[in-house]
Nucleic acid binder design. Sequence first.
RNA 1: GCGGGUAUAGUGUAGUGGUUAACACGUCUGGUUGUGGCCCAGAAGAUCGUGGGUUCAAAUCCCACUACUCGCCCCA
Length: 423
Amino acid sequence: MASIQRAKGMQDVLPEDRRYWDVVIETATKLARRYGFLGIDVPVVEYTNLFARGMGEASDVFVQKEMYTIEEPDGTSVTMRPEFTAGLVRAYIENGMASWPQPVKLFTVGPIFRRERPQAGRYRQHSQFDVEILGETDPAADLEVMMLAMNLYAELGYKGLTFQLNSTGCPTCKPVYIEALTAYLADHAARLAAIDKERLEKNPLRVLDSKEEGMDELLANAPHIIDYLCEDCDSHLKDLRRMLEALDQSYTINFRLVRGIDYYTKTVFEVWAQGIGAQAAVCGGGRYDGLAEAIGGPSTPGVGFGSGIERIILGLKEQGIEPPDSQQPKVLVAHFGGAAKETAVSLTYKLRDQGIATRLAFARDKRSMKSQMREANRMEAHTVLIIGEAEVAENMVAVRPLDGADQARMTVEDVIQYLKNKE
RNA sequence: GCGGGUAUAGUGUAGUGGUUAACACGUCUGGUUGUGGCCCAGAAGAUCGUGGGUUCAAAUCCCACUACUCGCCCCA
């Protein structure tokens, strides 16, 4: 209706929702620190080739259609980050983190940008909490990011959480698997929907997450990558599974969970939560031992996950989890203008200096007490401090509790004590 | 890129051809002097998404567009 409106796929986070963000980010940060991760921030914009490299055939599509890319006048192409991992790996290489004590465990929070058609919980700008362990091949690192993710949702109050786990192999064994899968699907081409035939041509692994009728059955009998893993990938997965079992952490081997791009290796996982719309996944993660090389750096193993904050919040709401109300002042300073105004102002700042959250009634001219009391009620204040001529003259403050208790007159010092006791 | 749904005050809605578009919530003011919630009274706030068409007459019917939304494609 109005021509003043936000751009497509962009969201305002209004104060009422902002408290969810506070809880999520605070919980995530606290947990990451508990796990020994270091906070880091990287730029929103990187050179386009950082994101484009290593994406293989897909990169053209992504760069042209899905990324916010800016051509600068001098011909430089930069792109707003569509994910965190590449930027973090870049920062690791560029800042010499390879010579820090290994591995380097990093976490970050911030917006990422993808120019897609928006849908539920999926916006063009959305924020992610992202965690990466760089420079470590031990499956215990995979376990660590998985458990951090799981603990995060559990701590936030999510119910019905499950791990979906699989391996996507490596450049040694994945091609063998793809061949076997392609052969199987080609043999059963008659049972494939048009869309899946197309996928079979372009990216056979994608057929695995087909939503078409009858695919559950067909795919159940298809080759599963777990049976095609090379020795290294196989032992990696087995090791990880043993550790999960040692923690009594249940998980589901989901043979349909894979990654189509080569630099993804070994572990792939998602955390699913019950009842949050079409997509159950609240996070996706895995190992990417080939990424650093793909973007032109030294070979560096890595494993991590990213989780969309908006989607986490959507899930919290659907599960009926309420964050505490945002902390607002419970004290209002009311006055009658004139000299009382200055006294009220100075009282307000005195209280704030004492750490007492205080709101000052604004009034350009005279304002009725009724109006100011209504304001106090609206903000759910427990106390109104009233400054009028009489109070100014006597250097006192009228303290009016809103819970029905009697009004009293106090010195400023007593008011401070009184309010501190009340908190 | 492809489908479905929706579009009326800040918000949620009512209003399916006929005078000044209604209600609730919210906002603001007042209910005498310096005191809230409840209640009462009043006010502000809508070119009915935009543009065209049909008609004596359109929020209402038709067409187009746009936006929002849900899903598909894609998903790093």
